[in-house]
Nucleic acid binder design. Structure first.
Lengths: 199, 199, 199, 199
DNA sequence: AATGAATGAGGATTCATTCAT
DNA sequence: GATGAATGAATCCTCATTCAT
């Protein structure tokens, strides 16, 4: 009689709880007890599943990044053409799943964590370079040699908009965020096209 | 013979120590003892001058923001013309004083702190709106009605570049940062001018 | 197999330890560590069961007052007639359980605590008014309109005798204490009876 | 040019400050800084005059007891006859100088202190035996062999009334206090006289 | 005489983590 | 699988006390 394996369920509940609590606290100053309570279990059990508090945080971070990655991949798959793919990446970045206030706050704290926890930095680096290469790939046919620079600019702007959301009193506005970045890229591309024509 | 008033000296030393330690730790997880030790005094004395740990953090934040503000003001005073003033703001933002790695890291943690500490949020809000109004003022003659949007974009990009510095393995590169943002603004302005001409 | 619930046991041990330590120190200057050590556990566990040091003190006070109240109730139940009931109250007040030196000392410190801790004052007020009403009830048939005054006098004298015990070098003598107060009341009652006869 | 010696003035100010602060706090949990501030000087100076915090407390206690002693002596000198002298002692005990709320509270804490500080106990013992002998002397001609018992009863009652004042919400009422104790003694004396007559 | 500067010692409280059941 | 019990190690903060000026 195979018992249903509760482990993944418990772990998922804890991961969600970590994100919620971090988002609520706005920092990593969250106790294991709080997390466990929100996940509906004892702190001891939380430690049973994840060896340590740090592991819980890492798992939560991995989850956030995985969701984000999946969203980008999904959006890219549905998009046709360089411009559309560019927009798709931005839309995915500011989509509802990872642009909820609490997720944004969690993301920022993961950024903080990445400064000191090697494993966290590794996770972040992977996703950053993936984003960069995605952006560059889209921009290459549009901007040629300028693609890396534009990718860098777009990446920084995505981060900046995220950062500002964590402090904004208004609910996050994905559409506006996308538009802001899209406009910048459009302008840059227009100038580049003009130059290549004129030059 | 007036005794030398050590209070401001001690306080300044503590503020510097706070920034250093926060920069080193990459987070607010810094003990008062560490700070005091680095500042060359006992933890008790640190508590004597600042009432609490939070007050130390706030003083450090105030200092960072004050230095930044001064730098911007100074740069603006020396600049002539809208374009020059725009560049001046960016140069000041990424100038050596507040673009040192440790200061950048401290800034990020202050951002985190601003999520929960009202006084911290107030400080940040003041400087954000000051930056916004400075940028908008410069952009108004260049971009007209689009000035607020460009100011928003520039602000987000400044933040984003800052954020990325906290994790970069390479030393911060102010020139490149300025160039990245300047290019974006130039492109936007070019498009705007083109439109206004064509339209 | 239900695990034995240790919580009440631990709490009782802590309450006893609080009384002992306070009695030993003669004041509220007792550390949680001392209390916990005497109760055979860590200070952290003591904080786990009682939220704070103050709560430990209040629990101890509640215990002392409860024991006293029970003793009075028990003695009253066994007594027959106003005079007997009066004596019963006094005997219970100076009975072995709450006339141990350490308990007396603890009682005094609770008095001190009641000056500033509202919850402590509330506890004390309850027991004071209960004592007053008990005494008045017994004295009413014996002293008529003078009952409240005699109750007040008796109450003050009980407190005074208690107070003196905290400093006495000799072991507390319950019998003598009862006799002292009883004699005073007897004299007062005799006079009152004489007056009512003469008047 | 002999400077006026400020030492006694400073010390007196500190003693008053100790009493006030203790009365205000309702306990010995008073910092030297608080005391010094109230006395209008620095904590360092307070330590200069009194070697330690304990010495400040002892000086304050000595002052309170001295004032009380003086008041009793003065009242006794003015009284004529045993009954009058008895009343004089009670009136002095509940006179305005040492029956102010704050002084009463201070007195109680000195009682607490006397449990552990030998010097404090010594002071208290001196005054207690002086009070006892004063009372006994007055009562001897009135109560004969019963004088010690009555003195003990009166002493306990004085203490008890004091104790209750520290917690009372109403301002201390010296007259009522004296009357309460006086009535008890009168009753006892009446009984004793009656017995000696009848017997 | 007077004080600000300075600190060591200590205390309440929190928390991640382990363990027995 | 699940949890209450238990604790050691921190950490912030306070305070009596000393010292140089």
């Amino acid at each position: 009689m195979p018992r249903p394996c509760v482990e993944p369920i418990r772990k998922a509940a804890l991961v969600e709880a970590v994100i919620s609590e971090i988002g609520l606290a706005g920092s990593l100053d969250v106790t294991v007890s709080q997390i466990a309570r929100r996940a509906g279990m004892s702190a001891a059990l939380a430690h049973h599943y994840f060896g340590s508090k740090e592991d819980m945080f890492l798992a939560a971070m991995r989850h956030v990044l995985t969701v984000y990655g999946a969203e980008v991949r999904g959006a890219l798959a549905a998009a046709d053409g360089a411009e559309a793919r560019l927009t798709a990446i931005l839309r995915a970045s500011f989509g509802p799943a990872n642009f909820r206030r609490e997720v944004v706050a969690a993301w920022l704290t993961f950024w903080i964590m990445a400064q000191t926890v090697p494993q966290a930095r590794r996770l972040l680096t992977i996703y950053e370079s993936r984003l960069r290469s995605n952006l560059t790939a889209c921009l290459r046919p549009l901007a040629g040699a300028e693609a890396p620079r534009l990718a860098e600019a777009a990446g920084a702007m995505i981060d900046g908009v995220y950062l500002r959301q964590a402090l904004a009193r208004t609910p996050p506005d994905g559409k506006a965020s996308v538009a802001l970045i899209r406009a910048m890229l459009t302008a840059e591309l227009a100038v580049i096209r003009g130059q290549s024509v004129t030059g």
